Amino acid sequence: MYFAPFIVRAEHERKVPVVIERATAEDLKATAKTPKWQTDWTSEYLADEKN
């Protein structure tokens, strides 16, 4: 088994490969701003190594 992330393009239902890059500190801070559309990646919960 290997990690091969992708998204599905809705208009034609084909897999589109993606590249995952390490987030910068600025990227992480943006997750806590309005609009709150995703998880706050700077939260204490996510900073806990067991999570």
Rank of each mutant, 00 (worst) to 15 (best):
A4S: 09
T24D: 04
T31V: 11
E26M: 11
A4K: 15
V19A: 06
W37T: 12
A30W: 03
K36D: 05
I7K: 01
P17F: 09
A25G: 11
L28Q: 04
P17M: 02
Q38E: 05
I20V: 15
R22G: 10
H12R: 04
E13C: 06
V18C: 02
H12Q: 02
A30G: 04
A25Q: 10
D27S: 04
P35K: 04
V8P: 01
R22D: 02
V19F: 03
A10P: 08
K36E: 05
V18H: 00
K36N: 08
K29W: 11
V8E: 01
P17K: 02
L28V: 15
K15R: 15
E13L: 14
P17V: 09
K36P: 09
I7D: 00
A30T: 14
T39R: 11
F6K: 02
R14Q: 14
R14S: 10
E21P: 05
A10Q: 09
K36L: 13
V8S: 01
R14K: 15
V16G: 01
E21C: 08
T34V: 12
K29G: 03
P17R: 08
E26C: 10
A32S: 13
W41Q: 02
E11D: 10
V8R: 04
A23Q: 12
I20L: 13
A25D: 10
R22S: 04
K15C: 12
D40E: 04
W41H: 10
W37L: 08
V19E: 00
A30Y: 10
V18E: 03
T24N: 06
K15G: 04
I20T: 07
T24C: 06
P5E: 01
F6Q: 00
W37Q: 02
D27W: 13
